[in-house]
Nucleic acid binder design. Structure first.
Lengths: 300, 300
DNA sequence: GAGAATTATGAATTTGTCTCATGTCTTGCT
DNA sequence: AGCAAGACATGAGACAAATTCATAATTCTC
């Protein structure tokens, strides 16, 4: 059977207008077309849709079933069209985020909380960016927003600078290194270094200091969670290098000391990557604005 | 926007099959057609429906919305088609009944109760047939089944004989007429006659006796309900002529007497009228069978 | 029962959908 | 890295279907 949305619209118009002629007017087609159309459906379905004998035209049992179906289905189609419109206008959309940076959860959650309120129709999700190549996933549209500190030149992707941060050394207050105004590569030789469990190429302390200096810490211990890492540091079980914003609370804690890495301090820049085509979306502009301002508050 | 059920079926097949080519196979259509089709909707709606860059093909945000809509809407269409099929096969249908005969409720309700159980998909309704021309309404398909004792020749309508009944005189046991073996026209001259509030042409006692004999009762008092009528008769406030099946209980009640009307008794035949086209429907056959057997039980 | 209004019908036209042939892109293999 | 295989895109033409136009047939109203 070949029921079609057109038939639903037509039966609805006929019921509303109370006749083919008026309904045709309403739908901006000829009365003839409606007659043919309904006739076609009647033939296909093998049922009478309305009682032709009587004026005003009345719907038959089958016609009423059709009408009820129309009243249920057409609004759904309308809603779908609205959703598409919203998508096209950028009111709705998808924002699946991949973070290559463990410590970024700290500022990302507050950012998303604000964003969610402003853009209720955007579908938000976060995918831990450690199991896969985040930028490749971005290119393949598996995610839409990647937080990374390693931009790579690309015409397809846009890298939006978010903020600068200083990978900062943190140790227990009892550490001998507390005596130094800053730490340097050699200082790590006898330390247990606590890091997130990712490849060294994505760890600031290795890319920015230890790898160029060819220094290997006494031990490198992977730790998943920032809070656990800080706990271990406080207990003197190791030292760590973390973004400054993570250490905001720790700086005021007498159990810890924080020191710049090298005399001048390391400086890194955090980026958000999007596909170039998406970069103009209003909601992208908004989350970028939030992702620039929110972490800075944490750094102060 | 020109969303169509075809698009819903297609997106569903694509999601199920995991690609245009396989989906095309499933729908018995070329891959090219699907490509064109989806492209057309994308152009119209101004949204991307799936991520083409990656294999296996994945639905975009918009595509997923479309798919969800399809999963909600297509089953409704299926259900509608099923209903049409039921209507065509005569499993479903409408049985709106008009009765011109007040006393017929007595047997009609038990009949409908049985019928309802056998044909749950038939839409049953009763419309008191007093306010309008029942047979005209039948012709105009405002009702589907008319209970009447006045058939009129028609090619369009079919009159199915149901059963014969005897309009029977009933009075209080204290009535002087109790002495007579039957009543005749002259006996009404000094009586208050209780009747249903309908035109005389539809009252058996007038059409069958009083009008031909040119006898006018002392008074004619309209009463709506059969039970009330019998109560008034029992109290000696009037006499009535009612179908025999209504008087089944009264016959065994010493407060009442019942007598044939005229020496030979009146005999009338009850009919059910349907449109000729409907007469072959299986459910019509069923209700006719019930309407023939049930009243006879009441008459015994 | 004539006129007005409404629906039905048939042929022609327009519109839209599908297929065919082929191009382009992605991917997986060596 | 290059090539073959698989999968989607594209354009032109064939085909089907929906619509229109013109007109006939109903039904209702006065």
């Amino acid at each position: 059977m070949h029921i079609d949305l057109r038939h639903l619209r037509t039966i609805r118009a006929i019921a509303r207008a109370g006749g083919l002629a008026r309904a045709a007017d309403e739908l901006n087609i000829t009365q003839s077309a409606l007659s043919h159309q309904m006739r076609g459906l009647e033939d296909q379905a093998g049922v009478e849709l309305f009682v032709r004998r009587a004026k005003p035209l009345r719907l038959s049992a089958a016609g009423q079933k059709l009408l009820r179906a129309a009243d249920r289905i057409l609004p759904e189609i309308e809603a779908l069209a609205d959703e598409f419109r919203a998508l096209r206008q950028g009111r709705a959309g998808r924002l699946h985020i991949a973070i290559e940076c463990h410590a970024c959860y700290d500022w990302l959650f507050p950012v998303l909380e604000q964003f969610r309120r402003a853009w209720p129709d955007i579908d938000i999700d976060i995918r831990a960016g450690f199991a896969f190549e985040a930028l490749a996933a971005l290119r393949r549209e598996e995610v839409d927003f990647v937080i990374t500190s390693d931009p790579e030149p690309s015409t397809e992707l846009t890298f939006h600078p978010l903020f600068d941060y200083a990978p900062t050394f943190v140790a227990a207050a009892t550490s001998p290194l507390a005596a130094k105004p800053f730490v340097e590569a050699e200082d790590f030789r006898d330390e247990t270094l606590l890091t997130y469990p990712v490849e060294r190429a994505r760890l600031d302390i290795f890319t920015g200091l230890l790898t160029p200096a060819h220094v290997e810490p006494r031990a490198v211990r992977p730790v998943e969670l920032t809070a656990v890492m800080l706990m271990l540091v406080g207990a003197g079980r190791g030292v760590a290098v973390l973004p400054d914003w993570v250490l905001r609370d720790v700086k005021r804690n007498p159990d810890y000391i924080t020191r710049p890495v090298t005399a001048s301090g390391l400086t890194r820049r955090m980026f958000a990557a999007t596909r170039a085509e998406d970069a103009t979306q209003p909601y992208m502009a908004h989350i970028l604005r939030l992702a620039r301002s929110e972490p800075v508050k944490l750094q102060r």
